[in-house]
């Protein structure tokens, strides 16, 4: 039986693990119970700063702390990080201050709260900022492992986590997770499926469906969107000759955009992008949203077939 867990729990656990470092501080904007920074707050209230419902202020309080040698971890819903985009741009990224921003509840998978809470553009907007590392891990183990690496990063980051539980893929494999390095979860030679976040497990399901049709798919967890693992993309092109990206995010500017940008400048190959088709979400259960948005396993498998046909 596959263990199920939410990536936000991996984030919360990592903050607790990082507390031994006295420079680690946590900033909250009234959503610590949701992003899971509350565990750190309970254990270390003296190093937790409530910024109220004020995301713009929170980002720059973090910048001030970082300028004095602290390592701030700020979190809120992914959608509300966007409200502080210019603070992230001008006050954090531009002076390259290592503030680590986590946006939980990202994507349409967030579910019944509806479109106002379903960020489908966070990965795209933060990817445009120089100096900022952008991540969207797929399970609690990799979320925890990536978060644990952030104090040594020395530059700002944005990480999207998800509200709802997804299959855990990396139990006992923490040591394989490294910022900037995609992970081949399943090898194959007909098509390469590159996924991130909640769609990684859907990509594995799609590969199973393709296998039943005699198609061999390679599945990659691209947990880091920036810097994108170009070497791995090149390898997939050489090995498979056709690619699919899959993300719970607008098809504009996210994982599909990042892979496409790499392809056009290096080794062009057919690419099909599975993602939210430039529209807003709506209220629904997580599994329903994957169908409504046409990003579940069958849609990934169909995209793989299209990509292969374009070879």
């Amino acid at each position: 039986m596959t263990r199920m867990a939410a990536t936000r729990d991996g984030y919360g656990q990592a903050l607790l693990d990082l507390a031994d470092n006295p420079k680690v501080v946590v900033l909250e904007a009234d959503l610590g119970k949701s992003t899971k920074s509350l565990h750190f707050r309970k254990a270390h209230p003296e190093r937790t700063v409530s910024c109220g419902i004020g995301e713009q202020n929170m980002l720059l309080v973090g910048a001030g702390l970082a300028s004095a040698g602290y390592i701030p971890f700020a979190s809120t819903f992914a959608i509300f990080t966007e409200r502080a985009f210019e603070q992230m741009r001008n006050g954090v990224a531009r002076p390259n201050l290592p503030v680590h921003l986590c946006g939980s509840h990202g994507g349409t998978h967030t579910g019944t709260d509806g479109s106002s809470a379903q960020s489908i553009e966070d990965l795209a907007v933060f990817r445009t900022l120089p100096n900022v590392v952008v991540m969207h891990p797929c399970d609690d183990v990799s979320t925890r492992a990536l978060t644990m690496q952030l104090p040594a990063l020395g530059q700002p980051s944005y990480m999207r986590t998800a509200r709802n539980k997804t299959p855990v893929l990396y139990d006992g494999r923490e040591n394989e997770i490294q910022i900037g390095k995609g992970i081949v979860l399943q090898d194959g030679h007909d098509v390469g499926i590159i996924a991130c976040g909640v769609l990684v497990s859907e990509a594995i399901k799609a590969a199973e469906q393709l296998a039943s049709q005699g198609i061999s798919a390679c599945v990659v967890d691209m947990h880091t969107l920036k810097p994108i693992d170009g070497d791995l993309i090149d390898k997939l092109v050489a090995q498979c000759g056709a690619l699919v990206t899959a993300e719970d995010h607008n098809i504009i500017g996210g994982l599909g955009g990042a892979v496409a940008e790499h392809l056009v400048s290096n080794t062009p190959a057919p690419l099909e992008r599975v993602g939210v088709q430039d529209r807003f979400g709506e209220s629904g259960q997580s599994d329903e949203m994957l169908e409504v948005m046409q990003i579940s396993a069958p849609y990934i498998a169909a995209a793989a077939q299209r990509a292969i046909n374009r070879k």
Binding site: N57, V61, A63, G64, L65, S67, A68
Partner: peptide, 9 residues
């Protein structure tokens, strides 16, 4: 806001 971060630090 930045000054507030400096003051907390």
């Amino acid at each position: 806001s930045f000054g507030m971060g400096c003051a907390i630090a």
